[in-house]
Amino acid sequence: MGNGTSIGKVRGLGSSHHGAHHWLLQRFTAVGNVVLMGWLVASFVLLPDLSYATVVDWIASPVSATAMVLLVISTFWHARMGLQVLIEDYVQDSGTKFGLFALLNIAAFGGGALAIFSVASLALGGAA
């Protein structure tokens, strides 16, 4: 049979063509999600209430603001990759797939940027 090693013949196969890297990143971000979502859930429980004053005071502190920005990055990254798999599995037409990937990227980066900007503006005292 042809040229190359046997590993070279199977690289790039599979529905996404670069699955191993994606698979690992899905897990790295999953570990981040466990830690950061755990922090968020614990915060919800430990805060005295969830009123505007309490919540804004809490998010404006450097540690909370940093954790929230990291949470946004980790969950959006993880979710963007997860939805990519959903599209790869159920959408066969390559044109539709391209369009959905474009939409997904716009939504993920747009939503993430909006969330991070909001946290930053609270932390830096720019609340309206």
């Binding site: 998010i59 969950t75 909001s118």
Partner: peptide
Amino acid sequence: ALIGLGVLVWWLVSMA
């Protein structure tokens, strides 16, 4: 991913 992150963004934007 589709609903929860939307709510998260709305929550943070509303706070700000």
